[in-house]
Amino acid sequence: MTEYKLVVVGAGGVGKSALTIQLIQNHFVDEYDPTIEDSYRKQVVIDGETCLLDILDTAGQEEYSAMRDQYMRTGEGFLCVFAINNTKSFEDIHHYREQIKRVKDSEDVPMVLVGNKCDLPSRTVDTKQAQDLARSYGIPFIETSAKTRQGVDDAFYTLVREIRKHKEKMSKDGKKKKKKSKTKCVIM
């Protein structure tokens, strides 16, 4: 069974824990209790493949930012979460993405942009803004509501699919490099 290491990042209060708990335990946590770091595991079937999701729910508070490099190193894919009623959390996505790329030393890291709290009427981040940002990053965008469960499975499952595509691409690139290195030079 394939294991996928997913990391949920975003500013404090955007609903990272609520999304994760909704996926794992099928219930909505409405009281806000700032996370330092929590880890969850769940076995699911995605596109006919049974897999184990190892999900790291991270601290959004700035005082825990020193811990970010460590979990970013171990993560295979990242859910970059903002709240649709919090423009600052949307603007912060850029910083999370840049930090992930720096730590992973790669421009090509599996990510999904997630606009959470889409059940709320007080939207300050337009869907088109988020779609445009995701398009500019070359990553999928999904709106979710941890409260109603809308888009929750889709967000995590899409990230797994992005990781699969990335692994497939990397193995193809690896095979191309191996083929090239088999060419021999004969000096007579």
Score class of each variant (00 low, 15 high):
97 R>C: 15
106 S>Y: 09
13 G>N: 13
34 P>V: 02
159 L>M: 13
162 E>P: 01
23 L>R: 14
60 G>H: 02
166 H>I: 09
6 L>Q: 03
147 K>G: 15
145 S>N: 13
14 V>I: 12
25 Q>S: 15
44 V>A: 09
172 K>S: 12
174 G>V: 08
160 V>T: 06
129 Q>F: 14
52 L>R: 05
45 V>H: 06
99 Q>S: 15
8 V>M: 09
72 M>T: 08
68 R>S: 15
83 A>I: 03
8 V>Y: 01
90 F>D: 11
34 P>F: 02
178 K>D: 11
47 D>S: 08
13 G>M: 05
141 F>Y: 15
153 D>I: 09
132 D>E: 06
166 H>C: 09
114 V>K: 00
8 V>E: 06
144 T>Q: 03
10 G>H: 01
67 M>C: 12
8 V>H: 03
77 G>M: 10
19 L>A: 15
188 M>R: 12
131 Q>D: 10
55 I>A: 04
24 I>K: 12
40 Y>I: 00
4 Y>S: 12
82 F>H: 07
125 V>K: 06
134 A>T: 07
133 L>Q: 04
106 S>L: 10
8 V>A: 06
101 K>C: 14
15 G>M: 01
130 A>W: 14
71 Y>G: 15
51 C>L: 13
39 S>T: 15
32 Y>I: 04
86 N>C: 07
115 G>L: 09
118 C>G: 08
72 M>Q: 08
117 K>T: 15
183 T>M: 09
134 A>N: 10
165 K>Y: 11
56 L>W: 13
120 L>K: 14
162 E>R: 07
161 R>I: 14
2 T>M: 15
30 D>Y: 05
36 I>C: 02
145 S>W: 04
77 G>I: 12
87 T>E: 14
39 S>N: 02
80 C>K: 01
108 D>W: 03
151 G>Y: 15
81 V>N: 04
151 G>C: 09
119 D>M: 13
17 S>A: 00
165 K>N: 07
124 T>N: 09
92 D>W: 15
100 I>A: 03
176 K>E: 13
115 G>I: 12
135 R>K: 13
176 K>F: 06
30 D>P: 08
128 K>P: 05
106 S>K: 10
61 Q>A: 11
158 T>W: 13
14 V>R: 15
